[in-house]
Nucleic acid binder design. Structure first.
Length: 578
RNA sequence: GCGACCGUAGCUCAGCUGGAUAGAGCGUCAGGCUACGAACCUGAAGGUCAGGAGUUCGAAUCUCUUCGGUCGCGCCA
């Protein structure tokens, strides 16, 4: 379970320790090393790793960066894996590592298997990742698919980062939209019996409700025809409607390869009086009062006509640096979205989670601010709640943008897209753009087998390595853990692959800490590129060159393992042939 | 009016807790398979990092500002 020994982390620790040894008498402590980084320089010619230590500490130590760097070099050179150290540019210290050490690291990576790249940055914390959480009122569209993939990979990343992780979907089955859903379903149901009824103007016009109405008819016959009381319909059909919609959603979730530990029912939560409890807690802390809100502003900043202020139960967000208080119950006495969200998040806290990640669409990202404040009030901590926002998805069909309109019912369904392009292409494409960038999903390119569609590029690298490994096996060259390797047989292209293998854990660490899965996807593409380049540069299978073949085998196995690990976190298959 | 996000090569995007000559793919042009997978590789051309100011040894990155774009904005979800 623990983190695997790693050259990169060891080396970074060595650099920090060495710097402290040299600089201690000038009053430098570990606290001064915050800005110190050890990373791969952009230019390969600058070496395998580099540090900005001298530049970061120069001022504090009253020295010129390069002079300080010169002072540090002898100490840094002591690390066994270091081949050469060089001071360059404004004061960078560049390191070239011994190829033999990189090979040893590659071998350790193979040994560690799926644990290679595991880091422990959790500090023992338990994480709950809430994602998808779309209302059970209809099928999933592509935009939700981005949420699903994004959240799922964040959860996997956190696992890779040593967190205990719980995946959860909030089923919003208690709000006004469920009432609308039931009314819409009832209308479709009556239509099946020939009644002249329209789906309500603000209802759900999608065809799927016709199918669900058929199911209802098959199950209950004409039982609901004579029921006209809305409350009775709600009592009778709410669960059926929600379950039917949720079944559609779950089918897509399963197709995407996602498993939730729990579908959390808001309705059930309310049965326990959770709202009352949490509101009382906030009230006891002095952050709830009865009051009126300023009139809402419309698009143009003007107040709507006919507005009548009403006294409501409010969360005092305005005392916590936000522009306005936030209503907990609306004027009908029903919990607002914000109100139920506090109760829900308090429930998460009660269950012992102290890292709460919520994947939220950018269009709803405004909602997290007051919630974050409420959680801060409840826990006294500001580091628990981590909403991660992602931008919307545009779909191109035949090069033309597809208009997404729920009203018109012409949304692009996730299930159709998955049929068309496949899960791997969809998942990987969702990861090739950072979350804050709107994503354009081109249906034509997603099926194309080119670098326009990098999932194939990465998978191809994996399959190629598998293919060569198979042929090595036939060649009978021993590449086992005990076989001697010859670093003289490592060419520059193979060495570049070894560097990537060495850097992998650092990339994972960064991706976890920033909750940014796309970093992993880009790393996979870089590693794949290094593999493809290497493939073209050398003759790999050579019965006359046993040492060289054996050495290449070791590198290839490590690269393949790392690719497989990274793809696994992305939830994308690593095929042995394609 | 307020808020969030964005503006980097012809196109789509990385790079943003400040670091070296700003990168990749696509597209364009020129090349590479009787050696293992050409779904691949090599090379070339292509940039005022939207504009301006500030912070400092150093800014695509941080701050302010202008312009431009996307998406939100009641007590809805």
């Amino acid at each position: 379970m623990g983190a695997v020994e790693n050259l990169f982390f060891d080396f970074r620790a060595h650099v920090r320790a060495a710097v402290l040894r040299i600089a201690a008498d000038k009053g430098i402590t570990a606290a001064d090393l915050g800005a110190l980084v050890v990373e791969a320089p952009r230019e390969e010619a600058h070496g395998d790793l580099a540090t900005n230590a001298a530049m970061v500490l120069a001022k504090k130590m009253g020295m010129a960066p390069r002079a300080l760097a010169d002072l540090l070099v002898p100490e840094l050179q002591k690390y066994e894996a270091v081949d050469a150290v060089e001071v360059a540019g404004p004061g960078f210290i560049n390191f070239r590592l011994k190829t033999g050490s990189l090979l040893a690291q590659a071998r350790a990576a193979v040994e560690a298997g799926g644990d290679y790249g595991r880091v422990d940055v959790s500090g023992g914390r338990k994480a709950l990742v809430e994602y998808v959480s779309i209302n059970p009122t209809g099928p999933i569209h592509v935009g939700h698919g981005r949420n699903a993939v994004f959240g799922d990979v964040i959860a996997s990343l956190l696992e890779k980062g040593g967190f205990e992780v719980w995946r959860e979907y909030l089923v919003n089955d208690a709000g006004g939209q469920i009432r609308v859903l039931v009314k819409s379903l009832a209308a479709r149901y009556r239509q099946l019996f020939g009644e002249q009824v329209e789906v309500p103007a603000d209802g759900y016009p999608g065809e799927y409700l016709v199918e669900i109405a058929h199911k209802l008819k098959a199950q209950d016959g004409d039982k609901w025809l004579k029921v006209h009381d809305e409350e009775e319909l709600m009592r009778g059909l709410r669960q059926f409607a929600v379950d039917s919609c949720l079944a559609m959603i779950k089918a897509d979730i399963v197709t995407l390869g996602i498993h939730f530990d729990r579908y959390f029912s808001e309705y059930e939560m309310h049965q326990t009086g959770a709202m009352k409890d949490v509101v009382q807690m906030l009230r006891d802390k002095g952050f709830v009062h009865e009051g009126t809100l300023p009139p809402p502003k419309g698009k143009d900043g003007k107040v709507a006509a006919g507005y009548v202020p009403v006294e409501l139960t409010l969360f005092k967000a305005s005392e916590l640096g936000l522009p306005e208080d936030q209503a907990i119950y609306n004027r009908a006495g029903v919990p607002t979205y914000f109100g139920q969200d506090i109760a829900y998040h308090y429930d998460k806290l009660k269950r012992g989670y102290d890292l709460l990640v919520t994947v939220i669409g950018a269009d709803q990202a405004g909602a997290f601010k007051p919630l974050a404040k409420a959680i801060e009030v409840l826990t006294g901590r500001a580091d628990i709640y981590h909403p991660v926002a992602y931008e919307n998805v545009k779909v191109l069909r035949d090069g033309q943008p597809v208009k997404l309109s729920k009203r018109a019912g012409n949304i692009v369904l996730l299930t159709d897209v998955l049929d068309e392009v496949g899960v791997d292409a969809f998942r990987f494409t969702m990861l090739t753009v950072k979350p804050t960038t709107p994503l354009t999903f081109d249906l034509a390119k997603a099926v194309e087998k080119s670098m326009d569609n990098p999932v194939f590029y990465v998978q191809y690298a994996h399959a190629r390595l598998c293919s060569v490994e198979r042929q090595w096996a036939e060649l009978g060259v021993d590449g086992g853990a005990g076989a001697a390797l010859d670093d003289g047989k490592v060419g520059p292209e193979a060495r570049a692959v070894l560097r990537q293998v060495m850097l992998c854990p650092g990339v994972v660490e960064q991706a976890v800490q920033s909750l940014e899965p796309h970093r992993l996807a880009f790393f996979a593409m870089e590693l794949a590129a290094a593999v493809h380049r290497w493939y073209g540069a050398e003759k790999w299978l050579d019965a006359a060159d046993v040492a060289g073949t054996r050495t290449r085998l070791a590198v290839a196995r490590a690269a393949r393992g790392v690719l497989a690990n990274v793809l696994a976190v992305c939830g994308v298959a690593a095929p042995e042939s394609m």
